[in-house]
Design a protein around this nucleic acid. Structure first.
Length: 592
RNA sequence: GGCGCUGUAGCUCAAUUGGUUAGAGUACCGGACUGUCGAUCCGGUGGUUGCGGGUUCGAGCCCCGUCAGCGUCGCCA
């Protein structure tokens, strides 16, 4: 090692010792006759002093010429700082390293920004110079937290008899699901591998093979548009277990959550984690990933709406729609017309709502709204009672289809929760959402789609509904939700060929297609497949949520932009004509 | 693909209603300085206001297009 200590460990107890430090020049204070350098590495910052009596003037002048982000080595003796010169901001602030000279290991050109800069540079600049951005203590903390979380996961599963098995990155494209990233085959011109959206099929095969408990930190790829919490390549903690039901998988993950939160955050989270069915989540929060850090539950006033004059409510309720709303406690005064117009625009634009009805609860407990003249006093007080509204509250209602009221109110809830700071930044709420529907119906084509994936087993008591009422058929599926974000999801799988066949038929996957795309799984299921199930956890999201960050790029060393490019490497890029020829590929331009 | 926000010196930002030569801090360069820790002091370099077009006597500011980053809807079994 070029160093004897790191830049975060020297203390008063080391005073008098010799030490050699290596690191980056975080800042330099040049007094002509003495130079102070804050030397930074992953572990911290230590002040290095080059001045008399240790250093002669040429050495001091030399030290004065080092610049920001130069890499230097400093050898000297650890000394108490002078009386009253302790720096409270540094863990090493009671001491300094007094050196006769510094050695430059590598100079740096003037960086476009420095890691210690208080205002973050624009994100495109951070991504282009990621090697500088990653020097920032915040980024180092995030990636260290990520490493710790993964370490705890691996330890936990190793202790529970899980076997880590790697599965291929070059696989084959399967129908349904997200858009695949494709890799052309040179050996088989015109044919393509697909990068895995998840190791789903492989892990089921591993169960058939008798591995019993499988785990993997798996890179996954989905060619869909990005979001603040979504990257085209991401990492899952993927696992699968044999001879289990949903309770067993949930129990294992409860234990994992407890351990990771305890070991990494030093906090306790009560387990078993609370659970809620899909139906309840949609009814109370309008979302299958509700943010349970705050209440603001949805209230259904459709029955009241059926009796009122107000056409928007009445017509919706009478034609099978729903009138549902939320209460924004104590905010009647703080929401101007303009702000309410903004919310109206928001639910129209983002969720296709026809409008937003709102009421203020006046001091005397009566409701006021631009449309309140369309209601009788009795109707208004019925609404007040249903919403359990108090003077000063603001009531927001959507009158629409079930789906639009769910999505719109969930959107409002999420937005208002953040804007009004209805939860503390460090609150952590984990819960399970269970009993998802097996299928969703495409509203236009009427085609059924698997809500999770086509290998998901129905609840035993709903098995008959497969044939009679697919919409009502619930799945043995469970999602882990952390702070309103989907942090994991899994299912018990179908291990019976007849049921699998039935599901494929419903999904419109004919036998030939099924055989072509995943015949190997169907074959495997015939050779003694144990009942099995599992789950995949979104590691990037776990880290983001546990670190209290709002963006997944903050926990990924080299993330992609919203247009799926890497600003540092400039991927994707062009390739040589030779490479394309070898693959029998040609690009075509498409007029837009 | 739709909607929205942002783009001014290397970096972070300012610039009144559309009005003089686009400013500040920091970084950088030169100089001074022995106890600083956002060092300080003196001096200096640095601008096609993302790009293209338009309106106007006059555009950083208004309009259209375009590029990039971000947020979001669609999409994400």
């Amino acid at each position: 090692m070029l160093r004897s200590h790191n830049c975060g460990e020297l203390r008063v107890s080391d005073v008098g010792c010799e030490a050699t430090l290596c690191g980056w020049v975080e800042s330099k204070r040049d007094h002509g006759g003495a130079v102070f350098i804050d030397l930074r590495d992953r572990y911290g910052v230590t002040q290095v002093v080059i001045g008399p009596p240790e250093a002669d003037q040429p050495a001091i002048d030399f030290a004065g010429r080092v610049g920001a982000e130069w890499v230097i080595k400093a050898h000297g003796s650890v000394a108490h700082r002078l009386e009253g010169k302790v720096n409270e901001k540094l863990s090493t602030g009671e001491i300094e390293l007094r050196c006769a000279a510094v050695e430059v290991l590598n100079a740096s050109v003037a960086p476009p920004f420095v890691p210690s800069q208080p205002d973050l540079p624009n994100e495109d600049l951070r991504l282009k110079y990621r090697f500088l951005d990653l020097r920032r203590p915040q980024m180092q903390r995030s990636l260290i937290t990520r490493s710790q979380i993964i370490k705890e996961m691996r330890d936990y599963f190793a202790e529970h008899d899980f076997i880590d098995v790697e599965t291929p990155i070059l696989g084959r494209s399967t129908p349904e699901g997200a858009r695949d990233y494709l890799v052309p085959s040179r050996v088989h011109p015109g044919q393509f591998y697909a990068l895995p959206q998840s190791p789903q099929l492989y892990k089921q095969i591993l169960m058939v093979a008798g591995f019993d408990r499988y785990v993997q930190v798996a890179k996954c790829f989905r060619d869909e548009d990005l979001r603040a919490d979504r990257q085209p390549e991401f990492t899952q903690l993927d696992l699968e277990m044999s001879f289990v039901d949903a309770e067993d998988v949930i129990a294992i993950i409860d234990g994992l959550v407890d351990r990771v939160v305890r070991k990494v955050l030093g906090r306790a989270i009560p387990t078993p984690l609370p659970r809620m069915t899909f139906e309840e989540a949609m009814r109370r929060y309008g979302s299958d990933q509700p943010d349970l850090r705050f209440a603001m539950e949805i209230v259904d006033i459709t029955e009241i709406a059926k009796t009122v004059e107000f056409r928007v409510f009445r017509a919706t309720a009478d034609s099978g729609g729903f009138v549902r709303g939320i209460k924004v406690a104590g905010q009647a005064e703080d929401f101007s017309r303009r702000r309410l117009d903004e919310l109206t625009e928001f639910v129209k634009r983002d969720f296709g709502a026809r409008g937003l009805a709102w009421f203020r609860v006046e001091a005397d407990g009566t409701l006021w709204s631009p449309t309140s003249k369309n209601f009788t006093a009795e109707e208004l007080s019925a609404i007040t009672a249903a919403m359990n509204a108090q003077p000063g509250d603001l009531l927001l209602f959507l009158a629409d289809s079930w789906n639009v009221t769910c999505r719109g109110l969930a959107g409002l809830r999420k937005r208002l929760g953040a804007e009004l700071k209805l939860y503390s930044p460090d609150s952590l709420h984990c819960s399970w959402i269970t009993d998802f529907p097996m299928f969703e119906r495409d509203e236009e084509s009427g085609q059924w789609h698997a809500k999770h994936h086509p290998f998901t087993a129905p609840l035993a008591e709903d098995l008959e509904l497969l044939a009679t009422d697919p919409a009502a058929c619930r799945a043995q599926a469970y999602d882990l939700v952390i702070n309103g974000s989907e942090a994991g999801g899994g299912t018990i799988r179908i291990h019976d060929p007849a049921t699998q066949q039935q599901v494929f038929e419903l999904l419109g996957i004919d036998e030939a297609t099924a055989r072509d795309r995943f015949g190997f799984l169907l074959d495997a299921l015939k050779y003694g497949a144990p009942p099995h199930g599992g789950i995949a956890l979104g590691i990037d999201r776990w880290v983001m949520l546990l670190a209290g960050l709002e963006n997944i790029r903050e926990v990924i060393a080299f993330p992609k932009t919203q247009k799926a490019t890497d600003l540092m490497t400039e991927a994707p890029g062009n390739v040589d004509a030779d490479q394309l020829n070898e693959l029998r590929l040609r690009t075509v331009s498409v007029k837009t």
